Computed example of a mutant assay.
Amino acid sequence: MDINDARIAVTVLLFAAFIGIVAWACARSNRARFDEAALLPFADEEKGRKA
């Protein structure tokens, strides 16, 4: 096993991890949680304002 075989193995492993992360991020079961997290920067906006 030379260095090129190790590079190929690492590339394939990282590509598989990337595909796994993309599949997890696009899963419908995570959509509600991500939508809620997207609104977090605006959560304290009403509390911070003084009337």
Rank of each mutant, 00 (worst) to 15 (best):
N30Y: 05
L39A: 13
L40N: 03
M1D: 11
A9W: 02
P41C: 05
I3N: 07
R7T: 14
A16V: 03
A51P: 05
A25Q: 09
F42M: 13
N4H: 08
I8D: 14
N30P: 02
G48S: 13
R28K: 12
L13V: 01
R33H: 07
I19E: 05
V10D: 09
A37N: 04
D35I: 09
I19S: 00
K50A: 15
A38S: 03
A6M: 04
I21H: 01
F18K: 01
V12M: 06
M1E: 13
N4I: 14
K50R: 15
M1Y: 05
R28E: 15
K50Y: 14
F34V: 10
G20I: 00
A23Q: 03
C26T: 14
F42E: 09
E36D: 15
W24N: 12
G20Q: 03
A38P: 02
R33I: 10
A37L: 15
V12H: 07
R33L: 08
N30T: 15
I21A: 12
M1I: 12
L40T: 13
R31V: 11
C26V: 14
V10I: 11
A51C: 08
V10A: 11
L40I: 14
R7F: 13
T11F: 13
E45N: 06
I19K: 02
A16Y: 01
A43D: 12
G20R: 00
L13F: 05
I19H: 03
I8K: 12
G48C: 09
R28F: 09
C26E: 09
I8L: 14
R31Q: 15
D44H: 07
R7I: 13
G48A: 11
F15S: 09
D35W: 04
S29H: 13
F15N: 06
E46H: 05
K50H: 11
E46A: 13
G20T: 01
V22Q: 00
A23E: 07
G48V: 11
A38L: 05
R31M: 10
M1S: 12
D2R: 01
A9K: 02
A38Q: 01
A6T: 06
A9D: 06
R28V: 10
D44K: 06
L40P: 03
W24R: 04
K50P: 01
A32V: 08
G48T: 12
C26Y: 08
R33W: 12
I8T: 15
C26G: 10
D35L: 10
L14F: 07
N30C: 02
D5Y: 04
L13E: 11
D2H: 01
E45Q: 06
R33C: 03
R33D: 14
A38G: 03
L14C: 10
I19C: 02
A51R: 14
A37F: 12
R7K: 14
